[in-house]
Write a protein that binds this DNA or RNA. Structure first.
Lengths: 350, 350
DNA sequence: ACATATAATGCAAACGTTGCCGGGAACGAG
DNA sequence: CTCGTTCCCGGCAACGTTTGCATTATATGT
């Protein structure tokens, strides 16, 4: 067993500071500070002495002291609805990748799809003097006052995926309309004519855009939109199932479903299985779906993929540029990334 | 569009401080400080005045100044191999849940399964004056010197899942041996006798423990261990597949596989499908698997589940207790949580 | 030798907060 | 009238770092 030296004495060692180095060398703290950052107005001998001792004592500057002085924390906050799903965690991986390389740290918050919790998190963030925020709003978020307030305080904000329409701050989104259009066209090409659209809360930007793509595709094929085939639901599995059961009581029944989130797609999938409907023979399915496991599902699900890692990277790049240029906007108002469609068994020609 | 007032003027407002309040009220900063924390040695009228103004100006204490003074950051660091997989993100959700309620923030780092990157992250963490660390070590990590060094600096550390044996600090693990034992017994009960064990790097604690459970189950059924049926691989899909193809060239071929991680299980699954082997008719499968999507896979996979959210919660509770008691150990040296097995089609009697 | 330029270093303030110490005012007791 | 006590409050230092300015010592030019 390797045991820490200090396991046995309660007193923990204080990190070595500039003052410690100054004291040991009999010089002033300012000289040490300048020597460490290689200022030219310090004698070469002194500088070497200081740098050597600093290395020996394993000096590392205290970022908290620096933050206090320079009024920046080198920390960016991320608020997502839930971290424990593939989409969010992959986006965060992208954010972390860029942040890490730019010397920023990432702190994570979850809104758990609650507006109230989102507001609390934002206040917490603001009081923590975080340098910037990347957010995908909760399912409940219709107003952007909390975000506007944060921006008013001078904190740069980048939104991704679920954006808040009324807030004018840079955003990273996927071409939701295009994705839904492609998916719907694909179903239509396969001969499905009664396509249901099972989607999220109507006020969410992604919902609106995917709806737009869905309707455009129908229009292109001159299929009238059936209101009763458009279902909005939240992220609770029981509710998703209830909504779907109701949908499937319609006559004529839809013969295809476009599901606009992983959770909804899985919910649909379960209900169809429970009802012993064959996919795609009785009813076809296409979903917005990123989890790589989905291609092993039986039947394998045709998926609209979002470029998750890219979304995170782009959002982080945008935000850090804003932070370092000390501005609240960016030359890019909106970065829109393309979706890709992977056609699999669940949407094959009947 | 709601636009932030300051979108149009570059100068961002400075957060209001105690000094601002003191100046406006013509009193000293220390009085304001005391009034805000409700000290009894402040006149009721003054206190009310201060508190009202603080509320009006939306004063929030600067946590960075506090951190500097009190030498603690109220931030805990988390290092995981990769965040973008179900296990890790679910553990982090558990950590965040507890941390949030205890007034701590969570910052995330990824080692990307590289020892080197893990060391860099730990140094970064230390220089950031983080209050504590929760870590699951990388696939490459065999030595614990970097962790010992951090502990020597007085930073409390809790390990979870992939622990580092030589480091004596609290750990939260699952009953890996028990899980593997259950899985193997289950396969044996179903009549499978040639059970291969596809697992991770041999020096990892989880590998050792799962191996132990596997061997115990075989011993119970008086089946000799076949070395050639034990395969170690890393997390690269190509390598997993290569290892598996080699394994399946043995005669007699194994007729069941125990896969000890989600990635390995998926890799095995793909190879078996490619080789047109039927599951479980030709070869059965059981895997350590947490992703909820796995029950929709064809055939549905028998899974050993780890209590991911609990692991995160327990680790966070442990760590925060250590931080607040200012100690490097805990009455619980090891918290071991039970696995659960969900029997599905992939391991049914042949 | 003296004025001046130049190089190297120290001092002090600042960032926002808290806590110790000290002091003035009011008041009661003697 | 004096002393002691209590109540409120201000001043100062400290946390670790940076930076403008002052200071000292040395070198250069005449």
């Amino acid at each position: 067993m390797v045991k820490g030296l200090y396991l046995y004495c309660m007193q923990t060692p204080q990190p070595v500071t500039i003052k410690d180095i100054a004291r040991k060398l009999g010089i002033s703290a300012s000289t040490v500070s300048r020597a460490l950052r290689g200022s030219t107005e310090i004698n070469d001998d002194t500088r070497k002495l200081v740098q050597d001792l600093a290395k020996e004592l394993k000096y590392t500057p205290n970022p908290i002291a620096l933050s206090l002085k320079e009024k920046r924390s080198k920390v960016i906050g991320v608020i997502v609805p839930e971290i424990a799903n593939y989409f969010c965690s992959a986006v965060i991986a992208g954010i972390e990748d860029i942040a890490y390389n730019m010397g920023y740290h990432v702190v994570i918050f979850q809104s758990h799809e609650k507006y109230e919790r989102e507001v609390i998190n934002i206040n917490l963030l603001a009081s923590r003097r975080i340098d910037g925020l990347i957010i995908s709003v909760s399912n409940e978020t219709q107003k952007g006052a909390h975000l506007a307030e944060l921006i008013d305080k001078g904190v740069p904000v980048v939104m991704f995926d679920r954006i808040c329409d009324e807030i004018d701050t840079p955003r990273v989104v996927t071409d939701d309309a295009g994705g839904a259009y492609d998916a719907t066209c694909h179903l239509l090409e396969q001969g499905y004519r009664r396509i249901a659209h099972v989607t999220m809360a109507p006020y969410l930007s992604v919902t609106k855009n995917r709806m737009k793509g869905y309707m455009e595709a129908l229009k292109k094929y001159k299929i009238p939109v059936q209101k009763k085939w458009i279902v909005h639901c939240d992220f609770d599995f029981a509710n998703i199932k209830k909504a779907l059961v109701k949908l499937l009581k319609n006559t004529p029944k839809p013969n295809a479903i476009l599901a606009t989130s992983e959770r909804i797609a899985i919910g649909c999938f379960e209900v169809l299985k429970e009802m012993k409907l064959r996919i795609p023979a009785d009813i076809a399915m296409v979903g917005f779906f990123d989890n790589p496991v989905c291609r092993f599902i039986d039947p394998s699900l045709t998926a609209i993929h979002q470029p998750t890692f890219d979304i995170g990277q782009s959002a982080a790049r945008l935000l850090i540029t804003m932070i370092e240029n000390n501005t609240l906007h960016h030359q890019y108002k909106t970065i829109e990334l393309k979706t890709t469609m992977e056609v699999r068994a669940s949407s094959m020609r009947k």
